[in-house]
């Protein structure tokens, strides 16, 4: 199980970082806010927050460096989550007041979580900084659940609309599929965060629980594949999608 979790984490880091860089390059060319937000979000979460938070578990790294890395990881996670939230709001609910307020509330919650995480990195014993028990971990997982839950719901609803449009020739197969893949990626993150939250609430360490490792490992692999197929699709995959509609 540990090997699966390790492979899945590595796959998620590589996939998210590659896709994030590709979308930021696209944003530089198009000046589009959507590609900038989602690219930045993926790069901060997958390329910085995940690898930096893993460094906490490497005893060979000096303690001061690990504390600093954890603080940067919390900052990156919050920045990434806010960027993804703004992507969802800007793309799907740009004219809706409640979505603006939800985004503002999400920003405030993430700033608070970052402050809490940095406080822990500075003042808590090194063993308890990245603890998967306690309120700080649960709240962080719930916030992640909220961000990716909203992502999955909006993409899923739009995917249903796009399928109806396809019936009268008003939607391209690869674009319909991209909504489905983005929904799948968000759903896998929701599943992982939910399992981690439940495990944490039950007082079990998620990193030592086989079921949690299996679910989050498989979720990470599926999410990575969905990200790559959505935003870095091989030509053969696009041809297959076009042929299958």
């Amino acid at each position: 199980m540990l090997a699966l979790a390790g492979i899945a984490t590595l796959a998620f880091i590589l996939a998210g970082t590659s896709v994030g860089i590709r979308l930021l390059r696209l944003a530089k060319r198009t000046q589009g806010k959507a590609e900038r937000n989602v690219g930045l979000g993926l790069l901060l979460i997958c390329g910085l927050a995940y690898p930096l938070s893993l460094s906490l578990q490497v005893d060979a790294i000096p303690e001061t460096v690990r504390r600093f890395a954890f603080a940067i990881a919390m900052f990156s996670l919050a920045g990434g989550a806010i960027a993804i939230t703004e992507f969802v709001r800007g793309v799907f609910r740009s004219e809706v007041p409640w979505a603006r307020w939800l985004t503002v509330a999400s920003c405030a919650a993430w700033f608070a979580m970052t402050g809490w995480g940095i406080w822990a990195a500075v003042s808590q014993p090194i063993e308890s900084i990245g603890s998967t028990e306690g309120l700080r971990f649960i709240l962080r997982q719930l916030l992640m659940l909220g961000v990716f839950g909203w992502t999955a719901v909006e993409a899923g609803l739009y995917w249903l609309k796009m399928r109806r449009r396809r019936a009268i020739g008003l939607a391209e197969p690869e674009v319909i599929n991209r909504f489905a893949l983005w929904c799948i990626s968000g759903t896998m993150s929701v599943v992982s965060s939910s399992v981690m939250t439940v495990t944490g609430l039950a007082g079990i360490n998620p990193s030592q629980d086989p079921t949690t490792l299996l679910v989050t490992g498989l979720g990470g692999l599926v999410s990575s594949a969905a990200l790559v197929l959505a935003f870095l699709p091989p030509k053969s995959y696009l041809a297959w999608i076009r042929a299958s509609f």
């Binding site: 060319r29 198009t30 004219e95 674009v175």
Partner: peptide, 15 residues
């Protein structure tokens, strides 16, 4: 008019 989600998602895959 405002940019639609399908226009954005088309662009995200077309770089």
């Amino acid at each position: 008019g405002a940019e639609t989600p399908d226009a954005v998602f088309k662009r995200l895959g077309g770089g």
